[in-house]
Each structure stands twice: as C-alpha cells, then as structure tokens.
Nucleic acid binder design. Structure first.
Length: 286
DNA sequence: ACCACTACCTGCATGC
DNA sequence: TGCATGCAGGTAGTGG
C-alpha cells in the first residue's frame, strides 16, 4: 500500500540507480500496465528508446522520470501492489513482471515494473510549464512539499460538506495520504474519521497537518511501511514502520495512549481503525 | 457544482 | 478437498 513515504523511498532509489542512464529498449509484458499511455504499448516502447533519464521527481503518490532534452516524463503510479525494482539482467523474471526497461551502460542492471494487481502503471506524457506531467495537474501538492499551501487546504476543508478522512484521501485537496497514514494521523490528532470538515478551526487543521507530517517523516526514516510485503524499495527490501503503527491493523489491541481496544469499522469498501475513547464520534447530524 | 459510490484486479485467508 | 466469499485499496469515472 504505497503512500507518500513508500513512494519517496522508491524515488530515492531511482535517483541513485537509474538517473542519468540512457534507455536502449523497453518491453511491455502486460498492456494493462501502460493503459494510461493512450497511444498504446508499441508507442510507449518506441518513444522511450534512446532517451536519457533525468532526476526522478514525486508529487504525492505519483513519481516520474523526466526525459532529458525534451519536455516529457515517464509517469509511474504504484497503485496498491506496484513495485519498481532495479535488478541484474540475469535475475529471473518476477511472476508479475509487467514492464522491463534496459539501459545502454555496462552496469548490468535493468528497471522492472512488477505489479500483482495491476492497479498501477507507467505512461509517457508532456510536462506542464511547472515540469509536472500534464495528466496529474489536478493532484495537489503534498504536505512535505515546501510550497504546500496550508491556508488554502484549511479553506478547502471549511468549504467542503464532507468528513475528514474522505478529505484526507482526496488527492486534489492534499496528496500522498492513503488509508494507513490517514488513520495514523487521525489517531495522533485524536480526531474521529467521520468528523465534518466544515467545522474545523485553523488550530485543528494545523495540528492535524503537523501529525501527518510527523508520521510520514518517521515512516520515511525507517524505509516506509510494509504491511503485507507487497511494498518494497528498488532493491526489494521492506521498510520497518509497520512496527510503529498505532491504529492501522490493530483491531482489538490496546490503544497505546489509553488502553481501550482499537476498533475497526467498514468504511468505503475498506476499513477505518480508531480508538473509540481518544477519537470520539461526532454528534449525529440532525 | 458538488459529493459519494463503484469498477478495476489478484492472491490469500476464512468458512462451509 | 474444493469451492465460494471477503478483504486488501488508489483512482477515474459515473450516477445522484
């Protein structure tokens, strides 16, 4: 379940192992993995040949490899189970290998996109004047971006007629937050996931953002969260933050603050984990 | 215009 | 043992 910290770990790996290499060949083993590339798999591979990779960038859960000497990028989204791996040529193909990219140098490694559930994918796009792939122009800056507009985020919360967890997962309001870090930040801020955003005060918004940034930075420091081993860095290694989770996946276990058993509630075809004592449900709307 | 819900996909755990 | 069901969940598109 790659969210911002996990994607950033991958971005850093690509910066170290893939940046400034030139592509000799790309191979699409499953067309669904490039479905966002509307011109099709053949166009994707043809246009990648001979191109030079720049410094990888990221916004929220999206990352992209700029192609030097042009205004295009290879956009990547890991979906729920996507992996970008730097592997030796001789490593056997992974069961769910979807795309392979080979390079011109003698380093002996290739870039592989592996994705069990194929919710993620790669695609090639023109950049906006800001250097962002055009198809993700609607994605908001993320809370670790120095240019994240905290005031605009607060005003958006006040304007919306929705609840806080929905808002946190709305990538056009704030990006990079998924189900795990939403539950973790709400637990830290002692806010129930169904609290309406319209009543948020400026201090409450600021406090929640501080907790979001804290939990993400702590996860980043230990290589991200690997809840079910599907998430790995470019070298195939798992992170350790799952050991530090306070709410997510802890149904029935004591809240680390007050000892009350953590509850799980079905929510939007997934789950919300929360402490029923620390995170009081809002009064039902009349 | 805004908000909420669902399809998409596969592997694993669980229940009968 | 084998089959069915539920669950994991980010995003874009649809329906209200």
């Amino acid at each position: 379940m790659p969210e911002l910290p996990e994607v950033e770990v991958v971005r850093r790996g690509l910066e170290r192992w893939v940046a400034h290499r030139s592509v000799t060949d790309a191979e699409v083993l499953h067309p669904r993995a490039v479905r966002r590339h509307l011109a099709g798999p053949d166009d994707f591979t043809q246009r990648l040949k001979g191109r030079h990779i720049g410094t990888p960038s990221r916004r929220g859960k999206y990352l992209w490899l700029p192609l030097e000497e042009s205004n295009e990028s290879v956009l990547a989204h890991l979906g729920m189970s996507g992996q970008l791996l730097v592997q030796p040529h001789e490593a056997p193909d992974e069961k769910h290998l979807r795309v392979r990219i080979r390079f011109a140098d003698a380093l002996g490694t290739e870039l592989r996109f592996v994705d069990q559930r194929t919710f993620g994918g790669l695609s090639l796009h023109d950049n906006t004047p800001e250097g962002l792939p055009d198809v993700i122009a609607h994605i908001s800056r993320d809370p670790l971006d120095p240019l994240f507009d905290e005031d605009a985020f607060h005003r958006a919360l006040r304007r919306k007629r929705t609840t806080i967890k929905r808002a946190l997962l709305d990538q056009s309001l704030i990006s990079g937050v998924g189900n795990i870090y939403a539950d973790e930040a709400l637990w830290r801020a002692r806010i129930h996931y169904e609290r309406p955003t319209a009543g948020f005060t400026r201090p409450r918004t600021a406090d929640l953002l501080t907790h979001i940034r804290d939990v993400m930075n702590e996860a980043l420091a230990v290589g991200g969260t690997s809840f079910d081993s599907l998430y790995v860095n470019v070298n195939g290694e798992s992170g350790y933050f799952d050991r530090s989770l306070d709410a997510y996946g802890r149904e029935g276990l004591p809240c680390r603050r007050c000892g009350t058993p953590i509850r799980r509630r079905p929510w939007m075809n997934r789950s919300s984990y929360f402490c029923p004592k620390c995170q009081r449900a809002p009064r039902a709307a009349s």
